[in-house]
Design a protein around this nucleic acid. Sequence first.
DNA 1: CCTTAAAATTTGCAGATATCAAACGCCGGT
DNA 2: ACCGGCGTTTGATATCTGCAAATTTTAAGG
Lengths: 272, 272
Amino acid sequence: MTAGSPRNGTENERDGPRRIKSVCTAATVIDVIKQQQGGSLTDISQELELTKGTVHTYLQTLVDCGFVTRENGEYRLSFQFIALGEHVRNETDLYMAGHSEVDALAERTGEYAHLIGEERGRETVLYESRGEFAVAMDYHLRMRETPQHLHDTAAGKAILAHVPTDRRDEIIANQEFERQTANTITDAAELRETLADIRERGYAVNDEEEIRGMRAVGAPVLGPDETVVGAVSVTAPTSRLKDERFRTEMPEQVMETANLIEVNLETARFDS
Amino acid sequence: MTAGSPRNGTENERDGPRRIKSVCTAATVIDVIKQQQGGSLTDISQELELTKGTVHTYLQTLVDCGFVTRENGEYRLSFQFIALGEHVRNETDLYMAGHSEVDALAERTGEYAHLIGEERGRETVLYESRGEFAVAMDYHLRMRETPQHLHDTAAGKAILAHVPTDRRDEIIANQEFERQTANTITDAAELRETLADIRERGYAVNDEEEIRGMRAVGAPVLGPDETVVGAVSVTAPTSRLKDERFRTEMPEQVMETANLIEVNLETARFDS
DNA sequence: CCTTAAAATTTGCAGATATCAAACGCCGGT
DNA sequence: ACCGGCGTTTGATATCTGCAAATTTTAAGG
């Protein structure tokens, strides 16, 4: 991930649109702190290719701005991100319209239920609710920390299936379908077929495509203007999600929840 | 909040330590977007005192870096903040050690229970759990979106009471105690007395000092090295939190929870 | 307590870059 | 077709950034 930027400096103002270089650098600093889970000035400046003096100035600035804190010699991302995240969440209509319904779904099924949003071809967990029997906490914890690709989850495929054609092509083109398990779909053509099926049926499944032993069912949530705004899904161990329950019962429950959320979106007005 | 920075530009490099100006500007842009709940280029550039051209470059940069998205002509903060917030949360020992205990507390009391962390003299909600009878959702929603002052909440006072003396003095000196209700403590001397009491008793109360009709009880959580790492609190309408329950029962439950969390902190190893 | 090494912070300087103004392009409305 | 508002691009210059190296602080031993 650290690759990216061209060796700036001497002669690379070829054509790209104008950007604020220092802001990009600051973003990289934040990313390094995230990746390394905090660290000393020396740690961080070694990871970036910048002088300690330079990185020091960046870190001081980020501390001043409240994005980073220092605690006995270690820099780490500040709690401000928690508050900002909460703010973004509460601004998101899908979250406001859907979190209670997802709670109900988790309760009814006893498993993990998720409300998923999409941005830049990645999915973000907007809300998670744990049913009584929910398993794989660690996995879900990681899910929430990083926007995931769309090709190997039920919610992701449900969203991808309903995104406008041009955007779908763009996402599929710019993304490598990393193999997670034997079942992961890594072929673009196969993925397209699956997506057509999903549009047909109205729901998506994830049959141990991301984690061995885990299945999931996901349904898209369409906004008032028929564009997809996100998805709902339930994830459970294969042993508890098979046959009828996997093929009929769970899809019905997930789609029902998605439908309820759609109604909430139509009905409610989420004023500023 | 937008005040702050000295009129940079002509002649203010008097003495302050060196900072990256563009990063500060970008932080302001983010803050404006947060405050205005998104907006057009024109909106945002009017709020800042910068040319549209300049702000345009900043916004493009922030979009590239993934902090901002554009959706039909409106810029808003991206879902990335949700993921980053989650990451910070999961890195925080207090959260890992305490969220289940707070769930239990909310269940036992039937009210809102919170796990609070402190940073830069402000409190951040690390975790919130709603008991069966919990009320005032909107208020708690706002609480989660912005780090609060420490003088008018139970958790805040519990933390402030146990912070090292020098830091406490610094926080009290640099903070204005905004009056929220008739009961808000706005006098530094009075606050100091209250804090001494709190250290004595081991818990803090908030008797309609922030919201009329709402009371709260908070207890500090001390880390392995005896420094305060945060607090636990329960908030309830005054009608359900009075007499014995307010003075004895609830403090005991909150302190017990805080104690359990302390034990978890001592015991568990939260490896990177 | 003193010595030494490592880490953090500060500073001068030269080259890179952010900012403004102004021009341009793109709509939607009349 | 004309106008007005909004977004985008661009050239030029004053300003800021980033390196290197000096200085201070902190930590570790002896």
